[in-house]
Every structure is written in structure tokens, then in C-alpha cells.
């Protein structure tokens, strides 16, 4: 019998070794098909999924970087344009201010000249009226002096008339 022939010391039995081997081969095939392969496939699928996600994220990052640099360039151009327009506006404003200032100065000078002219006219007018009054007073005084008997009296009347004329003249100045 093969069993008894195959038996060797230490109870090593080739038939039982083959039975163990058959058992393990079945186990190996079953575990490979039922557990190892599906779990590994799922892990691979997840790894691919995250790799794809990372790739997409990197692409989006690169696109965002490109768009950002493009917008930064546009912003810089707009800033330059704004600065130029601001400078031009400032220049125009300065010119306008200068123009207004000149006009105001001219107007002020004209007003001043007019005032001076008017003051001089009034002064002349006041002097003329004062002279007229003085001459009237003098003629009155002279008339009275001539008519009065005493010189002293006439002289006092003259002084009083002069004093009155002077007081009436003072507030006008």
C-alpha cells in the first residue's frame, strides 16, 4: 500500500502533506478571489481617484496662477492709466485755479482802484464844500465885522464862526 510505503519516521506522511497542500491551495485561491484581489482593486481605485483629484487640483492651481498673473498685469495697466489721468486732471485743475486767482486779483485791483477813485472824489467834494462854507463864513464874518462897531466883537464873532465851521467839517473826514 502506498500509504504504508510512503510513511517515514517522525510521522512524516506524504499523503497528509499533499492533503495539507490541497487545503492550502484551496484557501489561497479562495482568499485571493474573495478578499485580496477585491480589496487591492478598491485600494488601487481609491489611489487613482485621489491621484486624479490631485492632478485636477494642480491643473486648476496652474490655471488660477495664470489668471492671477493676467489680472495683475491688467490691474497694473489700469493703475498706470488712472495715475496718468489723475496727473492730467491735477494739471488742469491747477491751471483753472491759477486762472481764477488771476481773475480775482484783477477784480480786487479794479475794486481797489474804484474805491480809491471814489475816495478821492469824495475828498475833493468835501474840500470843495468846506471851502464853500468857509468862504461863506468868511463873507458872513466880514459882513458882520463890517457892520459891528468894535473890532473886538467882530474878531470874536469871526473866531466863533471859524470854530463852528471846523466842528461841522470834522465828522465828514
Amino acid at each position: 500500500m502506498l500509504y504504508s510505503i510512503a510513511a517515514v519516521p517522525l510521522n512524516i506522511d506524504w499523503q497528509q502533506i499533499l492533503l495539507h497542500l490541497l487545503n492550502f491551495v484551496i484557501l489561497f485561491a479562495g482568499l485571493y478571489l474573495l478578499l485580496y484581489k477585491p480589496v487591492k482593486a478598491f485600494m488601487k481605485k481609491r489611489q487613482d481617484h485621489y491621484a486624479e483629484m490631485q492632478k485636477n487640483a494642480e491643473e486648476q492651481n496652474a490655471a488660477a496662477d495664470r489668471a492671477r498673473s493676467e489680472y495683475e498685469g491688467k490691474l497694473a495697466a489700469v493703475d498706470r492709466e488712472i495715475e496718468e489721468k489723475r496727473a492730467a486732471a491735477k494739471k488742469e485743475l491747477d491751471g483753472y485755479e491759477q486762472m481764477r486767482k488771476n481773475a480775482a486779483e484783477e477784480e480786487a485791483e479794479a475794486i481797489l482802484n474804484e474805491a480809491k477813485k471814489k475816495a478821492a472824489e469824495e475828498k475833493r467834494h468835501a474840500l470843495r464844500s468846506a471851502r464853500r462854507e468857509i468862504s461863506a463864513l468868511v463873507s458872513n464874518a466880514t459882513e458882520k465885522l463890517v457892520l459891528k462897531e468894535t473890532a473886538q466883537e467882530a474878531y470874536d464873532q469871526f473866531l466863533a464862526a471859524a470854530d463852528k465851521a471846523k466842528r461841522s467839517e470834522e465828522p465828514r473826514q
Binding site: N23, G30, L31, L35
Partner: peptide, 24 residues
């Protein structure tokens, strides 16, 4: 006539395959 460990081997294989099938 086999050693008891061979039966153990079959039982363990059965347990593992059953577990694997349930998990699958």
C-alpha cells in the same frame, strides 16, 4: 487515518473562506 491537525487545517480553511465570502 489522518492527524488531527489536518482536520484543523480544513476547519480553519472553511472558517477563513466563509469569512472571506461574507466580507466579499
Amino acid at each position: 487515518q489522518v492527524n488531527p491537525a489536518l482536520i484543523s487545517g480544513f476547519v480553519v480553511t472553511g472558517i477563513l473562506l466563509l469569512f472571506a465570502a461574507i466580507v466579499r
